[in-house]
């Protein structure tokens, strides 16, 4: 790892609050780390563990899930469902040896562009410190195939 390492975060933003928060951050020209790549979903409750694992496997260093504040979900309590699923997911990630900071859940109301921007900045900073996710070492242990190792070497050099 060298100084030029920049983590890549996949962000799942709910259509009604957090995506609008991100829109507002932009409209208010709040500058924040460009490391988060946004994917819009209708509600944080749509985010399946599968999506998170897929993003990590595809090379993301972290995943941010952002929804409305509790009590403010456009679909009544979708964010609470997301929270419960997130707790489960965290346990699973721990067992896989993936650091907790890599998957984060935050609440941002449509009027809170700054909250979303801060969350992205904070997470980017934490991931910079953690360095790249070495899925194969942490998750697959020594079982990786030789050709996969080659990929791994490349990943390390990023």
């Amino acid at each position: 790892m060298n100084d030029s390492y920049e983590p890549v975060i996949v962000g799942f933003l709910c259509n009604w609050c957090s995506y609008r928060a991100a829109d507002l951050a932009g409209t208010s020209r709040l500058h924040y780390a460009p490391n988060m790549r946004p994917i819009r979903v209708m509600c944080s409750a749509r985010v399946e563990p599968q999506f998170v694992l897929k993003a990590l496997r595809e090379g993301a260093d972290g995943v941010l899930i952002a929804g409305c504040h509790p009590g403010e979900c456009h679909y009544v309590d979708g964010n609470i469902k997301a929270l419960r699923r997130y707790e489960l997911l965290k346990r699973m990630l721990r067992q896989l040896g993936i650091e907790e900071e890599r998957v984060q859940l935050v609440w941002a109301a449509a009027s809170e562009g700054n909250v979303l921007a801060d969350a992205v900045n904070r997470m980017t900073e934490q991931l910079r410190r953690l360095g790249p996710l070495r899925w194969r070492e942490t998750v697959l242990g020594g079982d990786a195939q030789p050709e996969e190792r080659a990929g791994e070497m490349m990943a390390k050099e990023v």
């Binding site: 890549v8 996949v10 790549r37 994917i39 979903v41 599968q50 999506f51 897929k54 993003a55 990590l56 496997r57 595809e58 090379g59 993301a60 996710l133 070495r134 899925w135 194969r136 050709e147 996969e148 990929g151 490349m154 990943a155 990023v158």
Partner: peptide, 19 residues
């Protein structure tokens, strides 16, 4: 959504084959 995730990560090294 899966396709979107792949597209978002076009420039990073996948950590896993066959996905």
């Amino acid at each position: 959504v899966m396709a979107q995730i792949e597209g978002m990560l076009w420039d990073v090294q996948p950590q896993f084959a066959m996905t």
